[in-house]
Design a protein around this nucleic acid. Sequence first.
DNA 1: CTGTTAGCGCATTCAA
DNA 2: TTGAATGCGCTAACAG
Lengths: 270, 270
Amino acid sequence: MIRPGKMKKITIYDLAELTGVSASAVSAILNGNWQKRRISARLAEKVTRVAQEQGYAINRQASLLRKEKSRVIGMIVPKYDNRYFGSIVEKFEEMARERGLFPIITCTRRNPALELEAVRTMLSWQVEWVIATGATQPDEISALCAQAGVSTLNLDLPGTLAPSVISDNYAGAKALTECILDNARRRFGQPIPLTFVGGRRHDHNTRERLRGFRDAHQQAGLVVSASQIFIDGYSPKHVQQTLAAFTPPPDGADGLFRLGPVCPAAGARY
Amino acid sequence: MIRPGKMKKITIYDLAELTGVSASAVSAILNGNWQKRRISARLAEKVTRVAQEQGYAINRQASLLRKEKSRVIGMIVPKYDNRYFGSIVEKFEEMARERGLFPIITCTRRNPALELEAVRTMLSWQVEWVIATGATQPDEISALCAQAGVSTLNLDLPGTLAPSVISDNYAGAKALTECILDNARRRFGQPIPLTFVGGRRHDHNTRERLRGFRDAHQQAGLVVSASQIFIDGYSPKHVQQTLAAFTPPPDGADGLFRLGPVCPAAGARY
DNA sequence: CTGTTAGCGCATTCAA
DNA sequence: TTGAATGCGCTAACAG
């Protein structure tokens, strides 16, 4: 078991002393601009080797303080514990790394206050961009970031102050509903209205899905009554409660499905 | 649509000028030690208000450069896109926040090189602790961190250089196997050997689960042959290939299950 | 080719 | 009660 002592962290000055070069030369070499400064390859190699040996790690704080660009990109996301957002986050991280950016991600649990706090924290870390995924208050976030000269992008839920990238929840829900209604018709000889469970009443995606659900019914000549709509949140607990209290209406509407998020990463399958 | 201009970020010096106080007083006030410096409440209130109005956000880089503790904690994790690790990450973030720590998380995809690169990056961000979750090379990570005076902890996969927190995969797999063998005996009147699919050959957890699997068979008087063991990785693709090529052995071993991770967050259910 | 210098924004002495 | 001075580690400009 290693007992990490309070060893002072090694700096470019230590490296300079160890190699007999100036600190600025060490900095240039370690940043890869040694050719620009026409430093000899032999020297560059030596410094690099010593840095390696000493386990030198640049101090990002000091480096960023001096530079004007941070190359830090932030993302807020409602949940990690979720295939949809999990894959978004994983891909985001990969893409950021590919572009030489440092991603910082915060899970904000659909909590408006937490979202803003997380964004404020990101701003204090000098992020250059913020991706707000499934944010409950995308415009508040954009406004806060704009104040600091930081660009924002909305993902999954749209806002009005920044570009938004969203799935077509309307078309997805409509296509899915049509498909199930068709199946029901084939099986039972008549169209049977379905029941809508899950989502959040003020959530853009839920509204879009509900709209698709309604339109598909209407198209099939069916009427959707309020008793077929259960919008009580996404959590399994809420849905379970809804289902426990559920009694199929007498008119035969016993088709039941839960409409969850459509996952673009996996490709939409209906 | 907001067009974020290149507005210069506001600093404590700007705030000092705006309020007619010195920068050091602003710093003290914004950090909550204004009473320690016996600054008048009225002044403190004024500075706080102006800071709010101007949307001031402390520059963490500068702040951390000056202080000796960063209160940054790092976690590496193999996958986000996974209920098990997703819930670990979410909880980790929550607990870090509760303690006033700033969590940075990196998804390393069970890639040893990526793991070390991620840890090096974390060190350059001055993390004070690193949690290595499901790391393929926990000891390399611990050594690297120890060199920088950073403490490590292994989660899910054990190491020898740092404390390790792991699930009891042996007991879990044994109990599960026993249960299925018992069911099979009840149903078919005789014990039928099972087939083990998934996992990684050099993975501690896989070995433990396999050990439990074997011991449960032995206890039931069954012999486990190599043809019953398919350890080809965790990815669905690999498992699918294995299953496609799978032909039940003639001795009746057609019981088949996939042994995945045990999820402590959800409670182990057998 | 290489070293010296001057901040980046902040927190912490120390002096007033 | 308060402000001026200092330096954290690094990079960029400039002077050799």
